[in-house]
Write a protein that binds this DNA or RNA. Structure first.
Lengths: 204, 204
DNA sequence: TATTATACTGTACATATATTCAGTATTTTT
DNA sequence: AAAAATACTGAATATATGTACAGTATAATA
């Protein structure tokens, strides 16, 4: 996906707002009216540019034949697996670990995510993460201090705050006074960061 | 919403499938092609019937000006409003109170829901409800003890545990030791139950 | 420096499209 | 039994709309 200019972004926004408001795409004239252009060709050229860059598709000849390609398009959710956080064993996407799937849009959580992790226990209760909550996990090893991470120590998987104390020392901090910090010396122990939490879903 | 006939249902399905596939509504001719009609007027009369019964809206004069009035829309997701929980003022669906909308399937929370409420403050923190969390609210007055309810006292809206002590006494209980129970005598005070929480959404 | 992309106005026109009118027939409602 | 709704075909038409062509101007790129 190539770079978008500010004017093209305005046109793209206009299309999506119009779609949301009316339920169908705008005409060239509609876009002109909305953005103050005085020639339908202004809209036309922007649409062509947006199509060339891959942001939209245009059905030739069809009136209002504009469709927004994509990722921040609300239509068409995907199935995301729900993985149980068992005391031992990594949260892999192997079929036997998938409890069920949940359908929701890709962009449901800001930065995108890969699966839901079902939380066991209350070690993160002060962070508002309760038993049976589903954490939206984005697979990444790029985590910062303060991030809620899904970490694996040997075969044990836990959800904790990440805190790098020094180049070799990482602390995994629970959000519950009944639990103790886990201090890991990277020289002597293996720490796998499976991903980080980008959201939470609770169903009563 | 009146009864729909089987042919009208076919037309409605056709519109939704076309929308999902192309991103914009069909023309009369498109519907005919899809369903085997030989006259555009066949589609037209069905559309008029669907509009009369409230299933769709038609923008007069606009090409492809069909929008599906989706309350029980089984296709794709729906747009749910996010309403800010201001200290004073009821959570109405008036446009000025809607911060934005979130697209997700109707059945995303078990029993269905009507809108998201953005929580302010930490009065329910021990129930895992944090500042800025979005509560999925189902509009109902049918609440049981222990339910997390959205209640209105005068113009103040709060989220609390519901606990009916006797026929006239209701307690609204926070989940935070820094807050006090609210005891309401229904004979002297007005209590409005806006709905109850059926889920929670948090986006980091 | 030449070229391409961006960002417009303005006019024109073929066609895509909504929409009306005229019929026919069956079913449902009043 | 009459009226209205449903379910179509078929033709006609005004207009809504995409789209090409002719310009002007500035910024970015090669």
């Amino acid at each position: 996906m190539k770079e978008i200019t500010s004017q093209q972004q305005r046109v793209l926004d206009c299309i999506q707002i119009y779609l949301k408001k009316t339920g169908f795409p705008p005409t060239r004239a509609d876009i002109c009216k909305e953005l103050g252009f005085k020639s339908p060709n202004s809209a036309e050229t922007h649409l062509r540019a947006l199509e060339k860059k891959g942001f939209i598709s245009i059905e030739s000849g069809a009136s209002r034949g504009i469709s927004v390609n994509d990722q921040n398009n609300s239509f068409g959710g995907d199935e995301y697996p729900v993985i149980g956080l068992v005391a031992a064993g990594s949260p892999t996407l192997a079929e036997e670990n998938i409890e069920r799937t949940i359908n929701c849009p890709k962009s449901f959580f800001e930065s995108g995510f890969d699966y839901f992790l079902k939380v066991r226990g209350l070690s993160m209760k002060d962070a508002g993460i309760m038993d049976d909550d589903l954490i939206a996990v984005k697979k990444t090893t790029d985590v910062k201090n303060g991030d809620i991470v899904i970490a694996r120590l040997d075969d044990e998987v836990t959800v904790k705050f990440f805190n790098r104390k020094s180049s070799n020392i990482v602390e995994l901090e629970p959000a519950n006074e009944d639990f103790e910090n886990i201090v890991i010396n990277l020289e002597s122990e293996q720490l796998h960061i499976e991903g980080k939490s980008v959201g939470l879903l609770r169903r009563n």
